[in-house]
């Protein structure tokens, strides 16, 4: 077990926990922030898997722009899951 595989396993656990939180959370803002965490960890994964182009795209689009679109939608509708 080198350091890299330990980091990858920790990130995988965080990724799955964040995905569960997206589905379970009653507060939509918290769910959207958790989905930004999923995007961030997948961006780190792309960098580890030797795909820097994709990592840059995911960091710019998945983390920033998608999150803000969800936030605007929640602001315009309602925050709690009925």
């Amino acid at each position: 077990m080198d350091y890299m595989s330990i980091i990858v396993i920790i990130l995988a656990v965080l990724l799955i926990l964040a995905a569960f939180f997206v589905i379970r959370s009653k507060d939509l803002v918290a769910a959207v922030v958790a989905s930004a965490v999923v995007s961030l960890i997948s961006s780190i994964y792309f960098y580890i898997l030797q795909a820097p182009d994709v990592a840059l795209t995911e960091a710019a689009i998945g983390v920033a722009l998608t999150t803000i679109f969800f936030m605007i939608t929640i602001r315009k509708t309602r925050r709690d899951e009925e």
């Binding site: 997206v22 989905s35 994964y45 939608t73 929640i74 009925e82």
Partner: peptide
């Protein structure tokens, strides 16, 4: 899930999963 925003969030989770899967197959 029945909430529409939750459904769109779930779709983006599927999206992220497929992206990681494809990149991992190419590694």
């Amino acid at each position: 899930k029945k909430n529409l925003i939750k459904i769109v969030l779930s779709l983006s989770l599927i999206n992220a999963g497929i992206h990681i899967l494809l990149i991992a197959i190419g590694y």
